[in-house]
């Protein structure tokens, strides 16, 4: 198992899938000659040529629609949207075409596209480069949404997403492309549904996804050290469909839940996981579930204000202490 970076894992998945199937193409802004804003397609342009590694014009709805149309004929496009903030412009084609075409054609057409995009907040990029849109994507029937929290998942989820016949949105993170982690040397396909236990625990479950898994893990260590509270951390790498069974199993064991999301609370991952807990295992609860979320504001530029707007590991610790009254 080699330790590689998140971006290298994504690049490796592209490379293997493009070598495996001549119908796999990559497209997006500055992904070819430049190799991608976060290097995720480095070297592929030279290897596979401009017809398969396509530098697109800055036309998000246009090239996303083009990729979807191509997928009707068996092409398998991996579309990079440079920043998730720009994906708003492609919403028409993602929601109105990719997510619905199988249904409204009575199963005749499918859109096996992969759309990947960095989806979190970085540092001081300002309001229009700091959107967290996972809540938007996960609310749409007909679209799969996954969000890797480490290089192994980033590699294996992209591999499976390329081969799956559904449209898949992969929510990546600007701050995570340089994160290192072990990735199997042998070819590996990560399931597109489910969740992973990132840390075993018995006292409370911390639900995280993508970057917030890391905040949960940090918080769990501190809670163990300072209070002897052993938190279980569940990595919800699939946001749609959410893993009801995984959520139920962990809460049935710990009887307490805190959901940690990088986005604003309204209509988000936390709200959805709480609803599932209610539906699946309400009577297992020893305490009302809590969520740790961003403030409901556009992200500010000022460093201190930005920090105040976003949750962190300390906020998770605070929430758990409040829940236990310690």
């Amino acid at each position: 198992m080699a330790e590689i970076m998140y971006w290298e894992a994504i690049r490796r998945a592209h490379d293997e899938e493009m070598a495996n199937d001549p119908m796999v193409i990559a497209m997006g802004e500055d992904i070819g000659v430049v190799g991608g804003t976060y290097k995720a397609t480095t070297g592929l342009y030279d290897k596979y040529g401009e017809d398969r590694v396509i530098d697109t014009p800055i036309s998000e709805n246009g090239y996303t629609g083009l990729g979807i149309g191509a997928s009707f004929l068996g092409v398998r496009p991996i579309i990079e949207i440079m920043s998730v903030n720009f994906a708003w412009l492609a919403m028409d084609q993602i929601f109105n075409t990719a997510a619905k075409v199988r249904y409204m054609s009575g199963g005749q057409l499918e859109a096996p596209v992969v759309i990947r995009s960095p989806g979190g907040t970085a540092h001081q990029l300002g309001s229009q480069h700091s959107a967290r849109m996972e809540k938007v994507f996960m609310g749409i029937a007909g679209l799969r949404v996954v969000t890797p929290s480490n290089p192994r998942q980033a590699y294996g989820l992209l591999k499976s997403a390329v081969r799956c016949n559904d449209p898949v949105f992969i929510n990546e993170h600007e701050l995570m492309y340089n994160m290192k982690g072990a990735v199997p040397d042998a070819e590996y396909f990560h399931p597109l549904e489910g969740s992973e236990v990132a840390r075993q625990g018995r006292d409370v479950t911390l639900f995280g996804y993508n970057i917030s898994v890391h905040w949960c893990l940090q918080a769990a260590e501190q809670l163990s050290k300072d209070h002897g509270i052993e938190a279980e951390v569940i990595d919800l790498y699939t946001l749609s469909p959410l893993d009801r069974e995984g959520i139920r199993n962990s809460v049935s064991k710990t009887h307490r839940a805190v959901i940690v999301e990088e986005a604003e609370p309204a209509v988000g991952v936390g709200a959805e996981v709480m609803a599932i807990i209610n539906e699946e295992c309400f009577f297992e609860l020893d305490a009302a579930p809590l969520r740790v979320s961003a403030l409901n504001i556009p992200i500010p530029y000022n460093h201190a204000l930005e920090k105040a707007a976003l949750p962190n590991a300390g906020d998770v610790v605070e929430a758990v202490r409040k829940m236990f009254g310690v």
């Binding site: 193409i25 017809d51 979807i68 149309g69 191509a70 997928s71 092409v75 109105n96 075409t97 054609s105």
Partner: peptide, 22 residues
């Protein structure tokens, strides 16, 4: 297909053409 969003098929058609080309 028939599509209800005015202008929606423009890029889909280009994409189908890309598929033909490939």
């Amino acid at each position: 297909g028939g599509y209800a969003l005015v202008g929606g098929p423009f890029p889909l058609a280009a994409g189908i053409a890309k598929g033909i080309q490939m």
